[in-house]
Design a protein around this nucleic acid. Structure first.
Lengths: 126, 126
DNA sequence: CAGGATCCAGCGCGATACTG
DNA sequence: CAGTATCGCGCTGGATCCTG
């Protein structure tokens, strides 16, 4: 159940991936990276995320030191989110994946089409 | 719901992340990358994955053209999995993330400790 | 406007049992 | 050994309502 066996790093990598791989975390980081600073509802609208998930994810990201939360006690309240240096630092690796994705999605789609076409008929015959 | 709003690439990036971000997909790719070729139960043991998830994930990865499946109709049967060129090509970006993780996990843990310490007491005062 | 609280549906995923 | 089929629970995450 937790026996990542011989692959010790796996657990740590896993840890990070459960954050980095989380669609909302990634999208938020990307958005904040592009826009610099965004307010709660701006993020909400931009990403089409429910405010529950936005709230939860932002708190997690803040907790992890990835985003800054600036609270302005005005009326109405105004909260601005932006990336911390740590948050900035992950943009590179993230972009790598993004680029790979954009470059290889066609290949993937193609592979899928091929796979689906013969839909597992003669797997062993050949 | 589906309104990724202005962020058109987001949906595609999301697509890839739901695969790349999937813990099992990643671990399988990493394992196959390290060992070259592995059999079903070898992967199962190495990763501590249930055979259900392993089966499902492998099929997805095969469908996406990321892994090769070589079936040997011997008795007992023997199936060998390995990375395709496409699968190989994602190892780089993946390693980027992994490296980032290993380098920054301490910073994250630290940030968390700090966050948890003041556990959201004076959020606006200070 | 920013977000907490609640409720609830869906499916992710593990455990188990069976097959070729 | 390499899977498939089934069941069941827990967590994810959206919808909704409410507050400061």
């Amino acid at each position: 159940m937790k026996s990542d066996g011989p692959c010790k790093d796996c657990s740590r990598i896993n840890e990070v991936l459960s954050r980095v791989g989380d669609r909302w975390s990634v999208l938020i980081v990307i958005s904040l990276g592009n826009y610099g600073t965004l307010r709660f509802n701006e993020l909400k609208r931009n990403l089409g995320i429910s405010q529950r998930m936005l709230s939860l994810t932002l708190r997690e990201l803040e907790r992890d030191g990835m985003v800054n939360r600036e609270y302005h006690p005005t009326i109405p309240p105004k909260v601005e989110y932006s990336l911390t240096p740590l948050g900035e630092s992950i943009r590179g690796p993230l972009r790598e994946i993004g680029d790979w994705a954009l470059n290889n999605l066609p290949a993937i789609d193609e592979a899928r089409a091929r796979y689906d076409a013969q839909s597992g008929l003669d797997r062993e015959s050949a």
